[in-house]
Design a binder for these strands. Structure first.
Lengths: 220, 220, 220, 220
DNA sequence: TATGAATGAGTGTTCATTCAT
DNA sequence: CATGAATGAACACTCATTCAT
């Protein structure tokens, strides 16, 4: 997709030694930010080039200076979003050895991401839907397989088995549970940070002691 | 320089007027079924009248014999879907007194629904996204509130508190957990029945004994 | 989902075929009346078969039992309307010998027609526009030439010349004046019976004595 | 039985993107001119965007670069037309003090307008009908009242009473007469400049001396 | 006679994209 | 770099008309 975009390096003589396209980069960045929000709010099809252009303060034609197509914008946003999320998760899980530790860090990281930039979580939720729905995206993104968090989930389950926290046979069950939790936490609490906070606390408690963590009577 | 394309135009043999042995109710039902699948697969905006019409074996104009607009089709599908799901949940939870019992029935019912008609779950997932995304739907469906399952979740938490299965203060936490699970189970396993099966089993185990249900070593 | 939906075949109570005690001629007449009003109110293109059918209490399909096409309805309405108007004018002018007498009867007849059935005047105004505008009507009605009143105007002018009320050379001028008056009285006072009454009185006075019929000072 | 039609599809050689040497204002102006003629000839509903676009040498989509809707085109045309007519009438009546003077100038101005640009008169006649007929226009043009000429008619009658040319009580009668004449002259002589000329001469004569201005015998 | 299911051509409108400037 | 005039294919929807029942 990027293959065709030729970067013609016009030797700007005005600013010596400075990157010639500082403004350009800023515009491009703004475009990406706006696009992330739009895609998150209205989906791929519901987002129009004009919408993005207007909110970024340029015209639709100018978009094609930075991206080769609407699809290209989407892919770029997705690329950046997933890389950012990946780094955050990687850093967060770095020091954790136990499965439970990793897991809790994962949930907290998801929440922190959501707090830092809600548009990101909203985009990712949108992305999961649209990458299956929209033909263009199905074709254009198929390779990328499935998002980052799946990788972490797998890593996490492996750690649990290795450390004896869970039995070997339970791997697939825990894997399913993790998927449910991570996706559920994203999709069920879009723009509801407080709800997400409570949910995470509930999940943590249950994971430790089962649902009756607080029971006044023994579980039937 | 003038490329000339020859198009073989086979004159359509379909006749005007009422086709023989058509059953109005049957056609309408087919339309709804097709629409549910289309909306689930491609979303509201990604679904075109032509798509639905073609798959139902009629023309776009004929749609308007049964529905006043695309929005009307969507609302009808939604109405039927939610009513059906509601009944299924209501029946399933009828005999259950304990929170855990209700909860497990809920998960199993969700799974059973998914098995019986995968298009239904897919539509409902689509619905949740589109009813927030698409302006038409935001306006046209104003605040049917959030679907049925939320009601059941609330009922369930109340039962848990009443029976002492959970402490009173834990209500909101459990509520959050439930939302996470129900939404997660729907969204994370679209068209993955087997995965959902495993996830449910994992959830059940964890709910009873915590994540270390199967641990060979005590939880760190 | 549809798997469970039981199709209760409620025996259709709607009666196909000929309903008892319908009078074909009566229906046809109602159709024409409704059509006249619709065409008058909304014009040829703005009037839909469904509109006419609904207001006449039948379905669009049934229309084609009485008329071969929308154009046919219009032509029928036009035919009847013009014939009716023609008869009224003919009767009214019968006894009048002088041009002025004929003229005044013409104006009064126009007014009387308007009072008796406002839809008629409205249709005729509509007709003049649409018969020039709408391609179908241009082609389908061309032969009919231009309405009745023109004929009377010509007759009237001839009478005036014959009786010496006006000079021979003034024929074309009077002809133009008459056209202006008759058309103006129709188009300028659609649904304004009172206004038309005043206008006619004004016209009559002016025709007798010039515009200064009531002057307190001699005309400059 | 299977007739096969061969269609020679000559690939369109028109290019995308901005055509060379286009002048935005010029195109917009052309669009308005074309639209005025179309609306005048075929009415609001009978005029299609495609018609206007084709005659203006662009595509239907391009129309929306200049106008937000078909209604917007119509309103723009109407606005311009009425303003132009208003100015012409205002200038023409400027120096006239007597009612008769004003009146004659009015008739002559109407005629001059018709000669200068017949499409204008035709549009205005169309406008009067359509603004009452077409729901869109009824709503979209709400009560611009009735056009300019009514204002002038009122002004004229007032002048006549003030100057003693007519009696005070005759005001409403003259008002009605004027309406009849102005509307009649427009509607009865669309595309018949010569007829209109004669009619105006007839009207002028009658206004001075009554219909028998030329009589060889006294009026009965 | 009348119904109502269905067609097919057409309408206004939107939108990603192109390209001269 | 950016604008904005323009395209062309698509879309939801309407409507006169047809015809089995």
């Amino acid at each position: 997709m990027q293959a065709i975009t030729l970067k013609i390096v016009t030797p700007k003589m005005t600013k010596l030694g400075r990157p010639p396209d500082t403004d350009s980069a800023e515009t491009r960045g703004r475009l990406i930010d706006v696009a992330r929000r739009c895609f998150g709010d209205h989906g791929y099809e519901g987002t129009t080039n004009r919408m993005v252009a207007n909110e970024a303060g340029i015209t639709t034609g100018a978009i094609y200076h930075y991206f080769s197509s609407k699809l290209d914008i989407f892919c770029t946003v997705e690329e950046e979003a997933h890389q950012y999320v990946y780094r955050r998760f990687a850093i967060a899980l770095e020091g954790q050895e136990t499965m439970v530790g990793k897991l809790e860090m994962m949930l907290e990281t998801a929440h922190a991401l959501n707090r830092d930039d809600p548009t990101l979580a909203k985009f990712l939720a949108s992305y999961r839907i649209d990458s299956q729905r929209v033909p263009e995206l199905r074709d254009g993104l198929q390779a990328r397989g499935w998002p980052i968090r799946d990788r972490f989930v797998a890593e996490l389950v492996a750690a649990g088995i290795a450390s004896g926290e869970i039995g070997e046979k339970s791997g697939p069950l825990i894997d399913g549970l993790m998927k449910t939790l991570t996706v559920g936490l994203t999709d069920a609490f879009i723009e509801d940070l407080e709800g997400q906070r409570l949910a995470i606390d509930g999940i943590k408690a249950v994971l430790r002691d089962g649902i009756a963590f607080d029971a006044q009577q023994p579980l039937g």
